[in-house]
């Protein structure tokens, strides 16, 4: 009985390894192909699509660097993502701190207010949002995007940060109060340093979708000089539609920074991106 079990277990283990391995190839191969093709000339791509590039030529990247707006898009995306996440973390942590560390009238009401914000799909309110931002002069303006992303991601940020802040023992706060620290000082010097890992998680949770988004720029940004990377790629694809090598190089360049950070920080990334779905 036990030998039989072991045998079938071995077979099962083999099947499992094959299944996982094949799946890993399916997941990674397209990305590797994308990266390899970016070093190839158009001709090479057509004649020998699966082989390694003959030489690692950076010509395609040079074209992108000198002849396209991609570097500009890159800077715009960095500004938008960076500032949105910064404002989100500061404002979101402040609100979460109030909700998690103080008893006051209206605490539950305000918590519910943020919670209900989680369920509102802002995309469907794109028309009023457009009119509103137009009135504020924020259309075709990176600041407009920052406002939208900050607002959209605030409920989840407050939600995640509240969870982490609640887990800190209240005796720490009491102890700092006995030590004479002001409420502001307790927050900044005692409590917030203890939740920096949580802030990294919340930061990744927000940064990745903001960096990757192209729906809101599609509607709110028209000038080439303010386009974000994801959105800019669509324009770039129209322009270079027949030069495959350059297209692959553009995709690779767009994917590279986030992929590098992911590979170095995969644990935090996975924790961060699944933070909303795991209680």
């Amino acid at each position: 009985m036990s030998t039989l079990n072991k045998k079938s277990g071995d077979l099962g283990t083999w099947l499992m390894h094959i299944f996982l391995g094949v799946n890993a190839v399916i997941m990674l191969y397209p990305i590797i192909m994308m990266a390899l093709s970016s070093f190839k000339t158009n001709q090479e791509i057509f004649s020998s699509p699966f082989s390694l590039p003959k030489s690692f030529s950076f010509d395609n990247f040079a074209i992108i660097w000198s002849q396209t707006n991609v570097p500009r898009y890159f800077i715009n995306s960095t500004i938008v993502t960076g500032l949105s996440v910064l404002v989100l973390l500061v404002v979101g942590t402040m609100a979460a701190y109030a909700l998690s560390r103080y008893k006051f009238k209206g605490n539950i009401m305000i918590s519910l207010f943020f919670l209900s914000g989680l369920m509102l799909p802002l995309r469907l309110a794109i028309i009023p949002l457009f009119i509103q931002l137009k009135a504020l002069g924020l259309v075709d303006n990176l600041l407009g995007l920052i406002c939208i992303y900050t607002a959209m991601s605030l409920p989840a940020t407050v939600f995640i940060m509240t969870g982490f802040l609640r887990s800190l023992p209240s005796e720490l706060e009491d102890s700092a109060r006995m030590d004479g620290a002001s409420e502001f000082r307790i927050m900044v010097e005692i409590m917030v340093p203890l939740i920096t890992p949580a802030m990294v998680i919340a930061g990744i949770y927000n940064a990745v979708p903001i960096w990757n988004d192209f729906f809101f720029p599609l509607i709110f940004i028209q000038s080439p000089e303010w386009k974000t990377l994801a959105q800019g790629l669509t324009a770039f694809f129209g322009e270079y539609s027949i030069n495959y090598g350059v297209l692959y190089a553009g995709l690779t360049l767009a994917a590279l920074p986030i992929m590098l950070v992911f590979i170095v920080q995969s644990r935090r990334f996975i924790a961060g991106m699944t933070a909303g779905a795991i209680k």
Binding site: P169, E171, D174, A176, R177, G180, L194
Partner: peptide, 20 residues
């Protein structure tokens, strides 16, 4: 008066040492 101005010091059950 607020806690710090009462001239008291307190030792907590969990010690409440600042971990960082």
């Amino acid at each position: 008066l607020p806690p710090a101005r009462r001239g008291l010091a307190m030792v907590f059950q969990s010690y409440a040492l600042y971990p960082h």
